[in-house]
């Protein structure tokens, strides 16, 4: 799905738009998500380490056309799918982003 076409750069898209995509990326080999996984579960407790974050950054950029600047790669932004979806929603609505 091309999210960049759906989201207007002037309105803040609903973060849930990104949640399913993120879950898909994470479960595709990066983390072993439990069956009862919730979007607010702590990703660091599930084993998210620097290698996994790097993989996530690359795959997010490919999937959503949204590069995440290094200064935004923080524990707070990467602690859960909910937090990361919110960050992506903000990034996609900020001027200068592709799409």
């Amino acid at each position: 799905m091309d999210f960049s076409e759906k989201n207007s750069p002037t309105t803040l898209p609903n973060p849930s738009v990104f949640a399913e995509g993120l879950k898909d990326i994470l479960s595709g080999g990066i983390l072993d998500l439990p069956e009862n996984f919730q979007n607010n579960d702590d990703l660091f407790d599930l084993g998210l380490d620097s290698m996994a974050i790097m993989q996530l950054l690359i795959l997010i950029e490919d999937r959503f056309s949204l590069p995440i600047p290094a200064n935004l790669v923080t524990k707070t932004h990467f602690c859960s799918i909910d937090a990361l979806s919110k960050l992506l929603a903000e990034l996609s609505s900020s001027p200068g982003q592709p799409g």
Binding site: P34, L46, G47, D49
Partner: peptide
């Protein structure tokens, strides 16, 4: 190695 180990659970 790329770890897939959960810290909890």
């Amino acid at each position: 190695p790329s770890q897939t180990r959960p810290k909890k659970g």
